[in-house]
């Protein structure tokens, strides 16, 4: 990686006896969108807060654009944070929220208002200058929060679950906006989320964390198509963990084929038999859950809706699940 905006070296955070982040190493390329993905308590927010400087690192180093910032105060790091639920100052209007940092630095009113207005224009909020946060919708609040975070021209923007406060429709719209801003501004975004969809949709780099450690880091497609271990395969979703003669493998749900119990399968395919345990219609796809006969395991096959309805399977039907060896992806044993 030639130019790195952020580099974490053996970064560790301990809270008393428990270790929230355990000696992680991570490099984030210049001007990229990086998603830290993982379940609750995996250490992703703690990692973000350490980069921001709102949490002291127990050990290890944080470098922003090659500069050691591990012990710098938050405002000296070249980072800015957009908080979960935005934390806009409730007693200040949109303009004063954006201008807050300039006011703290003693910049004159005319100058800071001009700058705040400029940023609010950038996020298309110029018509809401004198609205207080509670008079703005969730999406509008997010834009003001973005403008506030950008006022000091950070080289790295840190976003803590930025979309979790929004309803599902708005979430997808604001997601597109975040990506667009990142591209237009040409700075690095580090975005913490527990949503696989969000990470895959946004991330140039997706970092999957569990129990304070990085389980996999790579492009969105690398992580989805070649999960490093069972945990990543399960967490990223859309995968089945199957056993083949190569050991544990993952096979994407849309690569599994379903056939009635007695039907022949291609010679090179691997197969198992089971019973249909659940059928979920999801619009363009149908999710069929199959309980394996030989073991207490459930697998999910995702079928195209037309294919499913051409020959639907009823609950309790005996079926055969098959897949091609070429679709198998071997998994490392670690994870859990």
């Amino acid at each position: 990686m030639p130019n790195k905006d952020v580099e974490l070296v053996s970064l560790t955070k301990r809270f008393g006896a428990s270790t929230a982040v355990n000696a992680i190493d991570l490099q984030i390329a210049e001007a990229s969108y990086c998603c830290l993905l993982g379940p609750s308590g995996c250490g992703k927010s703690t990692t973000l807060r350490m980069i921001a400087g709102h949490e002291d690192a127990s050990s290890g180093d944080i470098l922003v654009q090659g500069r050691q910032v591990t012990h710098q105060p938050p405002s000296q790091r070249g980072t800015a944070m957009m908080f979960q639920s935005y934390a806009l100052f409730p007693h200040l209007d949109a303009r004063d929220n954006v201008a807050f940092s300039l006011r703290m630095r003693g910049i004159g009113k005319a100058e800071r208002n001009r700058k705040a207005q400029e940023l609010l224009e950038l996020v298309e909020m110029q018509d809401y200058l004198s609205r207080r946060p509670h008079e703005l919708s969730g999406g509008q609040q997010q834009r003001v929060a973005l403008a506030r975070a950008l006022v000091n021209e950070p080289s790295v923007l840190l976003l803590d679950e930025p979309l979790s406060a929004l309803d599902p429709f708005l979430r997808i719209r604001m997601r597109e906006e975040l990506k667009r801003f990142q591209r237009d501004l040409g700075i690095t975004f580090i975005h913490v989320t527990h949503s696989q969809d969000e990470a895959l949709a946004l991330g140039d780099q997706v970092v999957v964390m569990q129990s304070g450690e990085i389980r996999q880091s790579g492009t969105a497609r690398e992580v989805f198509e070649t999960p490093a271990n069972e945990f990543v395969a399960r967490f990223i979703g859309g995968h089945n963990i199957l056993v083949s003669d190569r050991g544990p493998v993952s096979v994407r749900a849309d690569h599994l084929r379903l056939a009635p119990g007695a039907a022949p399968v291609p010679a090179e395919a691997r197969a198992l038999t089971g019973t249909v345990g659940a059928v979920e219609y999801q619009g363009s796809r149908v999710r069929v859950t199959v309980a394996e006969d030989a073991a207490d395991r459930r697998h999910v096959a995702e079928l195209e809706d037309r294919a499913f309805f051409a020959a639907p399977y009823a609950l309790g039907a005996q079926v055969q699940l098959s897949w091609m060896p070429a679709d198998e992806h071997p998994l490392a044993a670690a994870g859990g």
Binding site: H54, S75, M81, S101, M104, A149
Partner: peptide
């Protein structure tokens, strides 16, 4: 988070 946001913005 309000206070952290202020610190983030460089407030003493």
């Amino acid at each position: 988070a309000y206070e952290e946001a202020a610190v983030d913005a460089g407030a003493t």
